[in-house]
Design a protein around this nucleic acid. Structure first.
Lengths: 237, 237
DNA sequence: CCAAAAGTGTTGCTTGTACACCCATGT
DNA sequence: ACATGGGTGTACAAGCAACACTTTTGG
């Protein structure tokens, strides 16, 4: 790499390398009926007809991958300003039989109750409980596995729920969400104490009386500007 | 997305999208003289002449990004079978002024004592202590920040050192490594008890007598086939 | 009255942390 | 002899898990 060739290299160095299709694939999670669900799209053509697929899209010239993911999310759920986090990249040369596509994966959390259900229906999409996922195209099953692991890690460090639950929720609903994410049950008393100790929930005055005889207070996430305190919610054994 | 167009789409859908240069950029960490160091390469041409850069390379047709990173690592350090982990992707359209390049970042840990020093010298590369890094090209400073955070997270969950220390090491050397990674000091007694409790170190018969009068036993990592026990080494306050 | 969830309290165990303390030895 | 790191022990606090217990109210 002698310096005299430097100027030449600057302009020429890129051209000798191949370009690739770059896609984003989004694992879109929602929570409904005490179940964690994943939004999937039917594949209407061969190969892999009848299988289901994550929603994805190709990265365009003028956008970053994050922006591409947000665009895809907006186009498919009608939502913007949602929770979005990078997962792993999947880049085996032959992972997509149609062409060489390098895929960056994202985990998105949305509130099922406020997304655009029309848009979803139009596309033939369907919310699948993560306990009963269908067969997926390509390596999308590995992608989902990775996404779930990321979600669990996230949920074990931060208190999530703002992104998945309605504005107001009971502590039982929050616990059920965590039980859906981790596929295990938590002691109601201990869970309550733990999440309240984090200090980012505030109790409202109203009660939910539909899910218990006694009635449970609704809580909401504080509109806290200054927390960022990273607490450990779930302890792995 | 009507189904009758499906076959057309399958063959045509890719072509309407742009292709991109895809690179891998590696944050190569080593440990030497009680300091965590990063391997950087001088940029010999404008723009950004005189700045330093992470080692990287372009993803080729026949390789995954992981394989590309391993190729780069082999070419620059002479090492294979090294610790390598995906970091975040960096994909802002204008991050590289030369061309639109989407970059996947990797964190690599190598043992400084066994890498090919000749190869490194040939390339003009230099090991920089992470406490005194020079100015870096493009967004490489953000990449390094991300890599360091990843390394810290990794080191706080798993006991690392196999990848950075020589075959045999004293517990003080291991502690110094952790102090270099986290830039804080640990209580010698507590650190010792903690790392030994994980159970993946075994004591050798020989002692190091150069760094203390009494002499400290050398330890090594067990060639354990069956651990995978994810312990928390460092507790964040 | 009873079942079921809400909510609080108690206890024991594990873990981290801050130390004190002795040991061995090169200078 | 003494300073330095090696190595062990102790005492306290924090956090968690298990579980008992009381409250409330619809059926």
């Amino acid at each position: 790499m002698p310096k005299k060739n430097a100027i030449l290299m600057l302009s020429e160095m890129y051209k000798q390398h191949p370009k690739h299709y770059v896609a984003v694939d989004c694992s879109i999670f929602g929570y409904e009926e005490s179940e964690l669900k994943l939004l999937l799209y039917p594949r209407g053509f061969e190969p892999s007809l009848g299988k289901w697929s994550l929603m994805g899209g190709f990265v365009q010239e003028n956008e970053s991958m994050d922006e591409a993911a947000r665009r895809v999310l907006l186009q498919t759920t009608g939502l913007k300003d949602i929770f979005l986090e990078q997962g792993n990249a999947f880049s085996k040369p032959n992972r997509d039989p149609g062409a060489r596509v390098i895929s960056m994966t994202f985990v998105a959390l949305i509130r099922i109750d406020i997304h655009d259900k029309e848009l979803v229906r139009e596309n033939g999409a369907h919310w699948w409980p993560i306990t009963k996922l269908p067969s997926l195209v390509f390596d999308h099953e590995a992608i989902v596995e990775n996404a779930l692991a990321l979600l669990q890690q996230k949920a074990s460090i931060d208190l999530i729920g703002k992104e998945l639950l309605p504005e107001m929720f009971t502590l039982m609903q929050l616990r059920n969400l965590y039980e859906a994410i981790f596929q295990k049950s938590f002691d109601p008393g201990n869970f309550r104490k733990k999440v309240l100790s984090v200090g980012i929930l505030e109790r409202s005055n109203s009660k939910n009386t539909t899910e218990s005889k006694k009635g449970a207070f609704y809580y909401r996430f504080k509109t806290s500007t200054s927390d960022l305190k990273s607490e450990r919610i779930v302890k792995f054994p």
